[in-house]
Amino acid sequence: MQAGILTTEGLTVRFGGVCALDQFSFAVGEKEVVGLIGPNGAGKTTLLNTISGFLHPNEGRVSFAGQSLTSLQPHAIARLGIARMFQDMRLAGTLTILENLLLACPHQLEESMCGLFLTPRKSRAEQKANAIKALELLASLGLAKERGETVRHLSYGQQKLVSIACCLARDARVLLLDEPVAGVAPRMRDQILDLIRDLPGRGKSVLLVEHDIDAVRRTCDRVIFLDSGRKVSEGSAEAVLADRRVLDSYLS
């Protein structure tokens, strides 16, 4: 088994007759950005779903920092320190941008009845601290002015940003990002890619699913090429993108 903070071993996921993931084993190391590329239907999102607990694998294991994730509920996995971004936009639509970010903050005493009614002052203090953090994050993404906007009234690009912001606000050790720059304007795209590039410096690891090859080249330490549920190629970005098999089935 490969070493790393997030590993899968022999992961197999089947839907009826279709094998979405086939004996897939890989590892994401500490402070590393790993890119995952492959044609549509290759199993990339299935992999993210399985890691984050929304799908149960037919075979194989997922481990995070030595702990097995396979039987855990999605919310428990999120609490362990894995943050997930969704390809189809998922946000709390009737809440504001700020509220969505506050939702994402990991420390929330006020979410339990005890915290809410028995220790109101401590909970309130925590909420204030969360709010400050959230506002800083929004400012760094240029969303500070819009923080009171209801999320479902936002444009696609803005919603995407909020999505990424929520991931960042989680303070997680591993981030699973599903096409973070798809459909985003160029300047914002650069900003997001720089942000991703900074994450290992802050002690975090990233598994990045993308179709944007340039984005992958800019941000990833390692790249894995996935096709029909199988790992076809793995290595540095240059190596994988020059690989004959990748070129044949994906790039040309």
Binding site: Q73, H75, F86, R90, T94, L103, Q108, R170
Partner: peptide
């Protein structure tokens, strides 16, 4: 907030640890 998030998008709420 958590209640409303669960109402709006259960899957999203779970991904945030709710």
């Amino acid at each position: 907030r958590a209640m409303r998030a669960c109402r709006d998008d259960e899957v999203f709420a779970q991904s945030l640890g709710k």
